[in-house]
Design a binder for these strands. Structure first.
Length: 256
DNA sequence: ATGGTTGTTGGACAA
C-alpha cells in the first residue's frame, strides 16, 4: 500500500505534472493540498482516466484538499470538527480498506501574534482532539499533508532565521509535539533519524531550490497500528526540479 | 536589503 501527499499549489496550474507523476508512480492513494478551487471545478475526469476516484473539499481561490484513491473510499468526513464557522477547505478524511486516511492543510499562521496565528493554534488544538478520537478506534490511521510546521532544527536550512516565523516558532513546535506525544509517529523521521537536508518545500523566491534552502513541513503522522506496518517513507525531489513546479514535492509512504 | 516568486484574479492577498 503506497500513499503519497503533495501540496500542488493549484491543481489547475499543476495538472500535467501531477498526472505524469501519478501515472509513473501509481500510488494507491494520493493526498493533495492547496488545490485552489471549488470542488466542482476539480478535474476528476483526468484522474478517473488513470483509474482513480477523487474526493474533494474546495473553495474559491484558496486552500482545498483532496483524497484520490484507486480503491473505494467510504465514511468521508469533509471538515475538521470543533468550529462550525470555519469555512476553510483544509481537511478530508475517509476509509480505504482497513485504513483511516486524512489529507490536511494546516494554516500557515504568519505573522506571529496575528489573528491568523491564533487560528493556526486553534486549528492544531482541534486537530489534536480529532487525533485523540481516532486513536481510540485502535485502527491504522494515516494523517498526511502540509502541516506548515518545521518540527526540529534539522528540518530547516537556517533555524535561527526562522525563530520568528509561524512555521517554526516555539509555540508552534510545542503544539506539534502535543500531536505526536498523544501517540503518533512522524513516519519520515522515524525511518531517517539523523538525515539532514531532507526538505519537502523550497520557496520560489531568491533561488531557494538552487541553494537547497528548504523546509520539511509536509508530514505523515501514523497511529501505532499504522507504524506496525510502516515499510518506507521517502521524499521524491524530482518533481520540484521540473518547469512550472509546485513549491512542494511529494512524500511517499509505504505500508505492509 | 522592505527586495525576491507564483497563483488566483483581474487589485490585493496568500504563501
Amino acid at each position: 500500500m503506497h500513499i503519497a501527499t503533495w501540496n500542488v499549489n493549484s491543481i489547475r496550474a499543476r495538472l500535467p505534472i501531477v498526472l505524469d507523476w501519478l501515472h509513473a508512480n501509481e500510488p494507491d492513494i494520493l493526498l493533495l493540498q492547496e488545490t485552489k478551487g471549488e470542488a466542482e471545478t476539480f478535474p476528476a475526469l483526468d484522474f478517473q482516466a488513470l483509474g482513480y476516484q477523487s474526493h474533494v473539499v474546495g473553495q474559491k481561490s484558496y486552500n482545498g484538499v483532496a483524497l484520490i484513491s484507486r480503491h473505494p473510499v467510504t465514511d468521508l468526513m469533509i471538515s475538521l470538527p470543533g468550529d462550525k464557522d470555519d469555512a476553510h477547505a483544509r481537511y478530508i478524511e475517509g476509509t480505504v480498506h482497513d485504513l483511516r486516511v486524512a489529507s490536511l492543510y494546516l494554516p500557515n499562521g504568519n505573522p506571529l501574534g496575528s489573528d491568523k496565528y491564533a487560528y493556526k493554534l486553534a486549528w492544531m488544538s482541534r486537530l489534536k482532539s480529532r487525533m485523540d478520537e481516532l486513536l481510540k478506534t485502535e485502527r491504522a490511521v494515516i494523517l498526511g499533508g502540509d502541516f506548515n510546521v518545521i518540527p526540529e532544527p534539522e528540518d530547516v536550512y537556517a533555524p535561527q532565521a526562522w525563530e520568528g516565523d509561524a512555521l517554526y516558532a516555539l509555540e508552534t513546535r510545542k503544539a506539534f509535539r502535543e500531536l505526536i506525544h498523544s501517540g503518533y509517529t512522524d513516519a519520515f523521521r522515524a525511518l531517517h533519524a539523523h538525515e539532514t537536508e531532507a526538505y519537502t518545500f523550497w520557496d520560489y523566491q531568491a533561488g531557494a531550490w538552487q541553494k537547497n534552502e528548504g523546509l520539511r513541513i509536509d508530514h505523515f503522522l501514523l497511529s501505532p497500528e499504522a507504524v506496525d506496518r510502516l515499510a518506507s517513507c521517502i521524499i521524491d525531489k524530482k518533481p520540484r526540479a521540473l518547469e512550472k513546479a509546485s513549491d512542494h514535492t511529494p512524500v511517499v509512504l509505504s505500508l505492509l
